[in-house]
Design a protein around this nucleic acid. Sequence first.
RNA 1: UCCGCGGUAGCUCAGCGGUAGAGCAGUUCCCUGUUAAGGAAUUGGUCGUAGGUUCGAUCCCUACCCGCGGAG
Length: 436
Amino acid sequence: MSFSFEITNKSSEAPLARAGIIHTPHGDIHTPAFVTVGTKATVKALTVEQVRDYVGAQAVLANTYHLYLEPGDEIVAKHGGFPKMMGWMQRGETRDNRQETTENAGNDMCPLPSFTDSGGFQVFSLGQALGHGVSKIATSQEISDAEAALSKRDEEQLARESVHEKLAHIDEDGVTFKSVIDGSEHRFTPERSMQIQHNLGADIFFAFDECTSPLAPIAYQKEAMERTHRWAKRSLDEHKRLGVSSATGEMQALFGVVQGGAYEDLRRESARTLGAMDFDGYGIGGSFTKDDMATAVRWVCEELPESKPRHLLGIGEPLDMLLAIEYGIDTFDCVAPTRIGRNGSIYTLDGRINITNATYKDDLSPLSEDPSWYTHHYTKSYVSHLFRADEMLAGTLASIHNLKFLTTLVDDARQALIEGRFVEFKESFIKRYYKK
RNA sequence: UCCGCGGUAGCUCAGCGGUAGAGCAGUUCCCUGUUAAGGAAUUGGUCGUAGGUUCGAUCCCUACCCGCGGAG
């Protein structure tokens, strides 16, 4: 079965919102859907059975840069792609109940839907962001402060900034990365990213782009966006030249990545430019303002072709997701649930809590309210203890809970959308979660 | 019983004639296409007890108490 997307329901309440099904060679993704991040072909701290059965994840997204560095995309290709390598399989085909020799391990298993990111985010995270504590989301205050600082920037300031050695350097043709493992240099171009992602074998993969800093000046946002558009064309051409995946022998779906930062004219231009290209779907990447990300999402979705799926890259804050669904987003991925989970933060319907707070030391209420969730059977007190005792299970249980929370949130939003009560669902969730 | 060493934050320790610090723990916050089991802030102490010397003692002196080691 090849790749396709069908919209099954459109919302009468929200003109851009839709529910649908992404058909991949390895199964369907019911959208809107939250995609679990497994950067190095592992969802940190979790087994694939936990991801599939306890979280109920529909798809996993891995990373090109990280898998290229280790174990290397050639080795991943030998496994038949990263989903097979990590055992991201349909039920009944997991490692523990297969009866095979090690000789053909994985060869007759059917993986579940998968994505790879192109390495475009590392252009930012190992470049501008490195050592500055900048995220791709900034408040409008931070953005205007950065603009003000730009006009009175002197040489001393520039020297101070350059103290942080970047691990990514951009030019027109591509990006030179330094390995985060051993410092060795590696060259990424759109073509190279496509070749690697063909070896990684995901059902859906992304064009090589440049994720810009939200604090970069508008002139640079425009320059980077236009370069990303040229890279998008090169990505598409290389994908067509390569044909089927070298790992799976199957056709992969390529998504272009919309850029343009927080600026309406750039966002719309980027969506129109890429929308006119022959991509299978679109990622919406780059930086956003924290105060009003949804508006930027709306600009983009108003311009993109309606019939193709839209993935909002790296967004997972509950409010952001609900508004993005309202404005036409189909899929999300985000590291937040696993990362904040490993660091002791837990989503609840009443907002985020830090489970290590003293108040939870003797709180015997369940970690998860819903009795059907795996993590219902652990008390907050116990999980708090696991964190204090620095036990590995703490990160595992918190990750399962947080992933289940966000996956359920998006699943419930989908159901509400199908049943024509999306706005009510969204507002009631927000009212309780954010106390607004 | 004698000799030696040591008693400083909850713990392990630094310091030194001008009334105190570190790491960890504690408390709290942060994390949005993972360089992240990561990062940041912050609360704790009449420096074993009682005297003495000194303008001034956690620091020097004396006694006592407690711990460790050695001798007998």
